[in-house]
Design a protein around this nucleic acid. Structure first.
Length: 636
RNA sequence: GCCCAUAUAGCUCAGGGGUAGAGCACUCCCUUGGUAAGGGAGAGGUCGUAAGUUCGAAUCUUACUAUGGGCACCA
């Protein structure tokens, strides 16, 4: 007796399979069926259902079905590879977002050029429509078997499976692999909506001490249409790549002599300065005092803070003429403690909120560099709040409100919060951790802040909140952070005089909203696809003439816009207006003000906004009013 | 740092053992044209760097550097 999702019940003989159930409902469903869900557990279609159960037939329409397709694509890939490249060992091949990959162990890594032949072989295997069957093997025999055929990685995987876990082997044609399953009934069900995308190296078990395997990535969809849509989506994302736009819009560049360190050009630096001015305004309003600390600080301070030992390999340093070693600061916190410590503080002074647009350098591994997103020279919108333990909750709350306000004003409505608590390796006593975690959690609760729990992911000195925003095309970026720290104040003796007249150790809250200006601007570029809102746009308006008769008038208009605080340029070139419009549109200038004899006669401009083919003719004053209002920095 | 790929004019790219090519941009000339490329001419590169093979290397080999895609890393 089985119960279908619509509540109806059907009777079957014992040993009936998912296939039988699907077939009894209809031939269409039988054809589309990929697997069956028995009491919530996904199973092969051909596996007998040995009890009364709730049954759902899974087709490609369900996400679970799509995942099955991807999983099978990985298997077909592995079969193809082993057919074409005998001696290659298989390891693992999971489903990932939008596709799958399979890691192979091979002396010669795969090359991009190999993909076409492998994909061709995969299509052949699909065409063969090999039935896929499930077998349960004895554990010891399985290990011996895989070892005997030279599949040492598979043998190792089986050895690591928990005792009692059935060892299932899936066979398709002559090929077979250890797999938990379930799988499609046959390779033909995979269809043709898959594509191999790239090769990559990947460490066995994700550990850089292990051998590097050769990974092949692919994507797989329900049909060709979905595959095409996916490939289109990737292309669209590439169009907003901040490195491409950075070049096109003349925002910044990188060069070989300073890898990972951006050279900001006038356009990019304008965006930077606007963003900085905005954050400065918000932070001052939010009760922060801005400070500035040195770039070069003697090694001894970093030794005392613990950074030299723990992060030494990331620190740039220099030997001075008097043979001292100075570190180019990789972070600002120790310096902020120096400012705090320079005066004696009463509990009445707390909380004390210091902010610095702190320029930091970190020697990041070469392979980690990525445009503005991962750099070696960057500026944090850093801040440290010195407070008492009792103030952690309220300070966390005040900070989080500020952060959400800023994200919203910058156009990011969707923000997730992750709460990371004590890691295995940590400093400080457990009762201190209890207090820090409780305080942070209370702050979240008081604000009604929902968070994902990220166990064991905290900093070694304290728990933290991480703020992840979602951009216009749905990608997540972790930007803001709030970290509770009891360790650094202890190491660097940050204290205050309490009500009782005794010295107490201050608590330090490390916090950033943007994270780094470089990275955040990269995110903004991609979020807006290069079309910055007016307040951030490097050039806000261009006044373009139709003929040289309009030059004087254009200069006058331009001057007035400039006087109103707008960033404006004038295009008097001997070019057709079509040409000028095209060029400034490609440069993503938000407003093109065309002036000809008509406008000059009427004291108007013909305003064309980026992204629109329409234009409207307005008085100069009106144009200034409209643009100046829109160009206002958010947040009052 | 590790694997794979890439590096040719300001940009985007083609070419390929016999001493460099296109389009755009740039300069000059003609054109004064109403909302996404008007026409003509010219200038511009020791083909990422360094070795090697060769009569000859931008082209083949190796190393290095940077960049890209991943992996590891991201305090």
């Amino acid at each position: 007796m089985v119960t279908l999702p619509d509540g109806s019940k059907r009777e079957f003989a014992t040993g009936a399979t998912g296939e039988d159930v699907a077939g009894s409902i209809g031939p269409g469903l039988l054809k589309a069926a990929l697997a069956v869900k028995v009491n919530g557990e996904l199973r092969d279609l051909k596996r007998p259902i040995d009890q009364d159960a709730d049954i759902a037939i899974i087709t490609a329409r369900e996400n679970e079905g799509l995942e099955l397709l991807r999983h099978d694509a990985a298997h077909v890939l592995a079969e193809a590879v082993q057919e074409l490249f005998p001696g290659t060992q298989v390891t693992i091949g999971p489903v990932i977002e939008d596709g799958f990959f399979y890691d192979f162990a091979r002396d010669e890594p795969f090359r991009v050029d190999d993909l076409a032949a492998i994909e061709e072989k995969m299509r052949e295997i699909v065409a063969r429509d090999e039935p896929i069957t499930r077998e349960v093997w004895d554990r010891g025999e399985a290990i011996d078997h895989f070892r005997s055929i030279g599949e040492t990685y598979k043998a190792e995987i089986i050895e690591d499976l928990p005792e009692g876990e059935p060892i299932t082997i899936y066979r398709q044609g002559k090929w077979y692999d250890l797999c938990r399953g379930p799988h499609l009934p046959s390779t033909g069900k995979l269809g043709d909506a898959f594509k191999l995308l790239k090769v990559a190296g990947a460490y066995w078990r994700g550990d850089s001490r292990n051998a590097m395997l050769s990974r092949i990535y692919g994507t797989c969809w329900r049909d060709k249409k979905e595959l095409k849509a996916y490939l289109h989506r990737i292309e669209e994302a590439e169009k907003r790549d901040h490195r491409k736009l950075g070049k096109e819009l003349a925002l910044f560049h990188f060069q070989e002599e300073a890898p990972g360190m951006p050279f900001w050009h006038p356009n990019g630096w304008t965006v930077y300065q606007q963003l900085e001015a905005y954050i400065r305004k918000k932070q001052i309003k939010g009760g922060y005092q801005e400070i500035r600390t040195p770039q070069l600080v003697d090694r001894s301070l970093w030794e005392k803070s613990g950074h030299w030992e723990k992060f030494g390999e990331h620190i740039y340093s220099a030997i001075t003429a008097d043979e001292k070693q100075v570190a180019i600061k990789p972070m600002n916190c120790p310096c902020h403690v120096q400012v705090f410590n320079h005066h004696l503080h009463s509990y009445r002074d707390l909380p004390l909120r210091y902010a610095e647009f702190g320029s930091c350098h970190r020697y990041e591994p070469s392979g980690a560099l990525h445009g503005l997103m991962r750099v070696r020279a960057f500026t944090q919108d850093d801040g440290h709040i010195f407070c008492t333990r009792d103030q952690i909750t309220s300070e966390a709350e005040i900070f989080t409100r500020l952060l959400f306000e800023i994200y919203r004003e910058l156009g990011f409505e969707q923000v997730r919060v992750k709460f990371s608590d004590r890691p295995e390796i940590r400093a400080g006593a457990d009762d201190v951790w209890d207090q820090a975690e409780t305080a942070l959690k209370e702050a979240c609760e008081q604000m009604g802040l929902e968070f994902e729990y990220n166990p064991g992911e905290g900093a070694f000195y304290g728990p933290k909140l991480e703020f992840v925003l979602t951009d216009a095309i749905g990608r997540d970026w972790q930007c803001g952070t709030l970290q509770v720290d009891f360790i650094l104040p202890a190491r660097l003796d940050a204290t205050y005089i309490g009500e009782d007249g005794n010295r107490h150790q201050a608590v330090m809250l490390h916090r950033a909203i943007l994270g780094s200006f470089e990275r955040f601007i990269g995110i903004l570029i991609e979020h807006h696809a290069g079309r910055f809102p007016l307040w951030l746009a490097p050039t806000q308006a261009v006044v373009a003439t139709i003929t040289s008769d309009g030059d004087d008038y254009a200069n006058k208009v331009s001057e007035q816009l400039g006087a109103a605080g707008l960033r404006v340029t004038t295009d008097l070139r001997n070019e057709k207006i079509n040409y000028k419009v095209r060029e400034h549109s490609l440069a993503k200038v938000p407003a093109i003000l065309v002036v000809g004899s008509r406008e000059a006669g009427e004291g108007t401009v013909s305003m064309r906004r980026l992204g629109s083919r329409d234009q409207k003719t307005v008085q100069i004053d009106e144009a200034i009013r409209l643009l100046a209002a829109e160009a206002k920095m958010p947040g009052g």
